[in-house]
């Protein structure tokens, strides 16, 4: 763990998932996943394709109901009382969740209304500026490059100032500058007492950001790796299943 403000250490976990199971018809995508996410931390979900990373992120984002298990976000039972838990989470999945025929501003405005964001127009302008997309804010999303769309998608996820940010391969489509900017934004985010969970294929990128990594394999957590141990050979060992569930 890197140095954090002392207020981060004593806080209760932001998210507690217990025994999450998710079936998709014939397949078991998640087979009893339990994890805690603390305030101020950035957790990376690693694992080979089909390990269940995306499914887990979707369950944590309340987009997908688990077949079994419990999920608490900010002390709220996210399965029973999703309406109260949802404002605490912001998520970007594989897709941008953006309406292609609306402008960036219109997209943000629409989602802002759903989340009941106060002072919506000001907040939208701020987010557009911070995400460096103010210049193209009034062009239909369809006409924006993949990287630009990704930035709008991120802006959409943080619009309502959630406590927990869930990002499924957020570096996709971003160039180096944009990746650095995203990394800075995430650091700033966790410094303010919030948490980030992200999935990634790219170890380099993960090492720069994450305080720890959780390795998934066939729907189960097979390893917890601390930041200091985030080395290619250790991660590769965890991927192949050779590493037991040690720290």
């Amino acid at each position: 763990m890197t140095e954090r403000p002392s207020s981060c250490i004593i806080q209760p976990p932001l998210l507690v998932a217990t025994g999450i199971v998710r079936r998709f018809g014939r397949t078991l995508a998640l087979r009893g996943v339990s994890l805690n996410i603390m305030p101020c931390e950035c957790v990376a979900l690693l694992g080979p394709n089909g390990a269940g990373k995306t499914t887990l992120v979707r369950v944590l984002a309340t987009a997908l109901q688990p077949s079994a298990g419990a999920l608490t976000i900010g002390g709220v039972d996210a399965l029973r009382d999703a309406a109260r838990a949802r404002p605490l989470v912001g998520a970007v999945g594989h897709e941008t969740h953006l309406y292609q025929d609306l402008t960036a501003r219109e997209n943000l405005r629409f989602y802002g209304r759903l989340y009941g964001v106060r002072g919506l127009e000001d907040r939208v302008s701020t987010v557009l500026k911070e995400s460096d997309i103010a210049a193209v804010a009034d062009r239909p999303v369809r006409t924006l490059s993949r990287g630009m769309q990704q930035r709008v998608a991120l802006g959409r996820a943080i619009l309502h100032e959630p406590m927990l940010l869930l990002l499924d391969e957020p570096e996709t489509g971003l160039d180096d500058t944009a990746q650095r900017r995203l990394a800075r934004m995430l650091e700033d985010w966790t410094d303010r007492g919030r948490a980030v969970v992200l999935t990634s294929h790219r170890l380099e990128w993960t090492r720069r950001l994450a305080d720890r990594a959780i390795v998934l394999r066939e729907g189960q957590i097979v390893a917890h790796i601390d930041r200091s141990d985030l080395e290619p050979d250790i991660v590769a060992a965890a991927y192949s299943g050779a590493l037991s569930s040690a720290g």
Binding site: R26, L28, G219, G241
Partner: peptide
């Protein structure tokens, strides 16, 4: 049977 197949496939894979 479907569930059993599923479990077996998962076990074999692991």
């Amino acid at each position: 049977n479907r569930e059993r197949e599923q479990r077996r496939a998962l076990e074999e894979a692991s």
